[in-house]
Amino acid sequence: MAESFDLPVPRVRSAVLDDGPALGELDRSTWSTLHAVQPRPQPPYEPFFDDRHRPQDVLVADAVNAAGETVVAGYVRIVPPTPLACNAHVRQIQGLAVAGWARGRGLGRTLIGAACLAARRQGANRITLRVLGHNAPARALYEAEGFTVEGVLPGEFFLGGRYVDDVMMGRPLTP
């Protein structure tokens, strides 16, 4: 029997170090060549957080299950795309995942909105991302949230027996 979850108003919060195992499991459970260029993770698993992937760069969406327990339903990682001062006005989404049971409920949109708000609070006036060309659901979501295609690297990756474009998207963060 499928467990039921209540997601009327998702709670989005900053990640903490203790979220690492749940976020790692979410990444492994949602892995697909639709969005991943790295091979499928194999045990022993790398930790979700490390020197380059810090809790303060991640927003987590929680849901409450039928037993009243709070569980991780999704996350978005937003970081400066480079360490350069001349690029400090930009943030980049470098990871977005929503649990299979939580899809189709607006959680991806909620996480993108929270990422844009967090980026503005950090002083950014622009946000970017990269998405695989064949990932039509993600591209449609990003377009619906105001992102436009700003560049394409044709055939940048070879996944699942075919060449796949790397699509750069971005949007301003004006209020």
Rank of each mutant, 00 (worst) to 15 (best):
H89D: 08
L111N: 11
T110S: 14
A114C: 05
R121E: 12
R121D: 13
R103N: 10
P83T: 02
A115Y: 04
L84I: 13
G106K: 09
V76P: 11
G104L: 09
R105Q: 13
G100V: 13
R77M: 14
R109F: 10
V76L: 11
A118R: 15
A102P: 10
C116E: 14
Q94W: 01
V98P: 12
A102S: 06
A124T: 07
A99H: 10
A114K: 08
R77Y: 05
L84M: 12
A119T: 02
A114N: 10
H89P: 08
L96H: 04
I78Q: 05
G74C: 10
C86N: 14
A73V: 07
A97K: 09
Q94H: 08
A114I: 02
L117R: 06
A73G: 15
L117E: 15
T110F: 05
A115N: 05
R105I: 04
V98A: 05
C86T: 15
Q92N: 10
G106D: 05
A115D: 08
A114V: 06
R103M: 00
I78T: 09
A97M: 00
A114Y: 01
A102C: 06
I112V: 15
R126S: 01
R126V: 07
H89S: 11
P80W: 12
L84S: 10
P83D: 06
G100H: 07
G95T: 01
I78E: 00
G104K: 09
Q94D: 11
I127N: 00
I78V: 14
Q92F: 06
L117V: 15
A102T: 08
